[in-house]
């Protein structure tokens, strides 16, 4: 095994071009587990922790450009206003120690369906900026996940940043685990209201081979909200709309039975989370309140 330590982004791309099988490592929260347990023996480890720009972010008019290695802790502390859904999701990642090292770039690189960032990225709307010595491109996050633990990266490409739409309305994220902290998602759900475009977007984690949006549910809800004049009227969403939305979210799942949960439970839980988070965000929108959809007082609403 060889340990490559590029000092700059250009050096990293050159190294990746020279060694396409090199495994990038930043926070190490996935890669080191695989090495420690003898599941992976790459010829090259490509250490990205010396590349300062990967730890930086820029807030623009429409989007936040989030460096691939910005740790979850930083997102929770610094980006909760711009990226509330992602900040809540970040707060459910592993443990404080893991949140200090793990990053959205790592989640995307590993492309596990259980990655906590994915549903929030899908709901908010995001593009993944990837690059190689050949140049760079931006991949809509929906197209980034290509299979279980597979993504759209070419062999010589690295993830540089994630461009995430700034929240224009309330966002929420919920995750079911069988423990109250430090737990991998049995399934997860994210929702983002986009009052500027009068749309609602969703993201589902751990309930299909890849993270997915519940598009039929989004279409149904967008139509129902438009037809009922909900965006203007400040009305409460009717139970029948919420129920149908929840059913369609569950129908978007294609889960498996595994040691973490049954397929039937995953579908059920996604429907409950869909209904609840829709309620939280919509009530926050009605109240004209903050973007986290937190209408209950005080509390440690994540981030």
């Amino acid at each position: 095994m060889e340990f490559l330590r590029p000092a700059s982004w250009e050096e990293a791309l050159a190294a990746k071009a020279e060694h396409p099988a090199a495994v990038p490592i930043a926070g190490g929260t996935d890669v080191m587990v695989e090495i420690n347990f003898d599941r992976r023996r790459p010829d090259h480890l490509l250490d990205l922790t010396r590349i300062a720009e990967l730890y930086e972010w820029q807030t623009g008019d429409q989007t936040v450009r989030l460096g691939a290695s910005v740790p979850y802790t930083r997102i929770i502390e610094r980006l909760a206003a711009e990226l509330p859904g992602l900040a809540i999701a970040a707060h459910t990642v592993g443990s404080p120690q893991i949140r200090n090292r793990g990053s959205v770039g790592g989640n995307l690189g590993a492309a596990s369906p259980a990655g906590d960032a994915h549903p929030a990225l899908l709901a908010a709307g995001a593009e993944v900026e990837v690059a190689s010595v050949r140049g760079s491109r931006r991949i809509p996050v929906e197209e980034f996940y290509t299979g279980v633990k597979r993504n759209a990266l070419a062999d010589d490409e690295l993830i540089r940043a994630i461009h995430i739409r700034k929240a224009a309305g309330p966002q929420q994220f919920s995750k079911v685990g069988t423990r109250n902290a430090m737990v991998i998602a049995v399934c997860a759900f994210a929702i983002a209201l986009h009052p500027d475009t009068r749309t609602v977007r969703t993201g589902i984690g751990s309930a299909a081979p890849t993270p997915v949006r519940a598009r039929a549910a989004e279409d149904f809800l967008n139509a129902a909200l438009a037809e009922g004049g909900f965006w203007d009227g400040g009305r409460t969403i009717t139970p029948s709309i919420a129920r149908r939305f929840a059913e369609l979210c569950a129908a978007a799942c294609d889960p498996i039975d595994d040691v973490r949960g049954s397929a039937a439970y995953r579908r059920h839980a996604v429907s409950i989370m869909a209904r609840r988070t829709l309620g939280w965000t919509w009530e926050a929108f009605r109240a004209g309140g903050d973007t986290t959809g937190d209408t209950t007082e005080g509390g440690a609403r994540c981030a």
Partner: peptide, 21 residues
């Protein structure tokens, strides 16, 4: 990275030493 027994400060930040190459 699931137990915290190896927690150290790395440049001041608490991390699991088992997950740092």
């Amino acid at each position: 990275g699931e137990c915290g027994s190896c927690t150290v400060r790395l440049d001041g930040v608490p991390v699991c030493a088992c997950l740092v190459a």
